[in-house]
Design a binder for these strands. Structure first.
Lengths: 335, 335
DNA sequence: CTGAAAGCGCTTACAG
DNA sequence: CTGAAAGCGCTTACAG
């Protein structure tokens, strides 16, 4: 029973065309009539029905943020911080945001012409069918990671530089036996982290020991605690470890506690992405910082450009990372 | 350029009415025709335009999840865990979900007939105008907290019972000087926590000391570290503290570290809501558990009932809380 | 069982 | 400057 454009036209004694014109600020309405119409709009508290408008303009005014593996990702601050940026930037636009956290929702959302464009959050290779995505025929931006061989622009951290700085920071403190706690190789983020780790070790003249590389299924989760604590109980030589997410680093801290290994005295730990909670922990977590909020903002602004038919100059928008020294890193204990 | 119902009708040699009927599973179409239509739908990969359907059915098929103070709340696991439940339950429905994290988005979302109903996430009193909410004329469910004097059903934890269990747990371990780190009184959650704290102390024969009650602006944030660490540096008698969120408890852990107060040796700490990260911390955080995922699910199922015109039997859906003993609580040190 | 028609709330050429 | 009309993609009485 909400008031429609007809009600406004009736009360103002004009046609709905004129009402529509003042609504969209189009010319072709006399100053006085426009004034009267505006008044009636206020009086009646009229609000345009976006669905109806969308139908004729063939634009919904909505964008989608799709998060595959929602239940894994939701509790990861890497996600919520980027989402914070997305939300902030959204205020600068006219778009509403639809979100999906499961494949069921994803499909419903993307296949029903409910959105003008989509932001894919850290998708993994082969998780989403490239053909399906292309068949959607809407602009798509990937944020937080990128998809192999994909035609979609992405916004992501400079992972390789990040891990390079982590490893180097440990090296500079005197560490020579440095491990890597990584996510799954289906994520390009992990792939890059691995590559960067390998490359940096080599360039520092250290040899890589596969035994010190841990590959977990997820960037969060409790599995890391089990795996790493078990390892630490039998190991005496690894003095530092770099992780491909802060969440994994928190797991390593827990693992160290269980294995009775003290941080940073016996083991130095560095996370990645520097989520807000990192500096809040005890001890506070050393990490490689990246502007996650800025990444979220960037993703939205790129997507709106695309939706408005503009061309993008760059396909990759890479955000710099820099090491932040906090409480979980120190000089290795002499043995 | 996507395929419409017309294209299907044309290719199948029937009217759009028949196509529409098979689409919605309505009777009145011959078995053979229906079969043919279904085939064409598949061939063409036709998907109904939800916006158009919504226009005539006067139902959008969307619900809103509105999160005031988004940037504060986004990084709070209390939120993301409930959202996880919301997302899970959404799979059982036909609804898409729109989210808003700022007042700008909120207004745009709720005033433009874009949704059939809304879930308000932990709103504070006077943050949202009750008149405005009522004028929206859509079903509304409040989750995570509740609004004073509001006509909206709510889904929330049994806060008073939670804090009662926290205080009692400390008491049973021998603590007699127990503080409270609380959120702002504009949140009913804090109000209830305060009340429950006061009541429990009294019933245990302890006297309340206002000096030990800390009221913060937010349930997360770094302010708590500053305030509590300062206090701890001058205080020698408080041996335990209950917090109205796990996030605040993490802040207290940090504060204790700064003040050189050891947990749980010198100070026992209990959080609230038992978010996933609680058990993951070092030491793991004692808390009062509540089924946050279940709360999210419940909110969705109640909202869909309302949207479908059903009546709700209860206005308050209160989830039980129970104490979980972990690493941050112990016997007070003798002095 | 089947289709022509009206209508949901808008926008936008097209006339005047 | 202004309005009547067509149309966006659907659903649903209403006839037949």
């Amino acid at each position: 029973m909400s008031v429609s454009i007809k009600d406004v036209a009736l009360k103002a004694g004009v046609s709905i065309a004129s009402v529509s014109r003042v609504l969209s600020g189009k010319p072709g309405v006399g100053a006085q009539t426009a004034e009267r119409i505006k008044q009636v709009i206020d009086e009646l508290g009229y609000r345009p029905n976006l669905g109806a408008r969308g139908l004729v303009k063939r634009k919904t005014g909505n964008i989608a943020v799709v998060v595959p593996r929602g239940s894994y990702i939701l509790n990861n601050p890497f996600f919520s911080t980027i989402l914070d940026g997305i939300a902030k930037e959204l205020d600068e636009t006219e778009f509403n945001m639809l979100m999906s956290f499961t494949s069921v929702q994803q499909q419903r959302l993307l296949e029903t012409q409910a959105v003008d464009g989509a932001i894919l959050f850290s998708p993994r290779n082969e998780e989403l069918s490239m053909d399906w995505l292309k068949s959607l025929a809407i602009p798509i931006i990937v944020v937080g990671s990128y998809l192999e061989d994909s035609p979609f622009p992405c916004v992501r951290p400079d992972d390789e530089e990040g891990v390079c700085q982590s490893v180097t920071a440990l090296f500079d403190k005197g560490h020579r036996t440095i491990g890597l706690v990584n996510g799954p190789m289906s994520s390009m983020h992990s792939v890059r982290y691995y590559k960067g780790y390998e490359r940096t070790l080599k360039s520092l003249g250290l040899t890589m020991n596969k035994e010190l590389v841990f590959e977990l299924d997820e960037f969060d989760g409790g599995k890391v605690v089990e795996v790493v604590s078990q390892f630490l109980q039998g190991n005496q030589h690894m003095t530092g470890v770099v992780c491909s997410s802060d969440f994994l680093a928190i797991g390593v801290m827990k693992a160290a506690d269980i294995a009775n290994v003290s941080i940073p005295h016996d083991l130095s730990v560095i996370g990645a992405d520097d989520v807000p909670i990192a500096s809040f922990l005890t001890p506070s977590l050393s990490s490689v910082h990246v502007d996650l909020v800025g990444m979220g903002r960037k993703a939205v602004s790129l997507l709106t450009q695309l939706v408005e038919g503009e061309q993008l100059e760059k396909m990759e928008h890479i955000f710099p990372m820099y090491y932040v020294d906090r409480g979980t890193t120190g000089t290795p204990k002499k043995k």
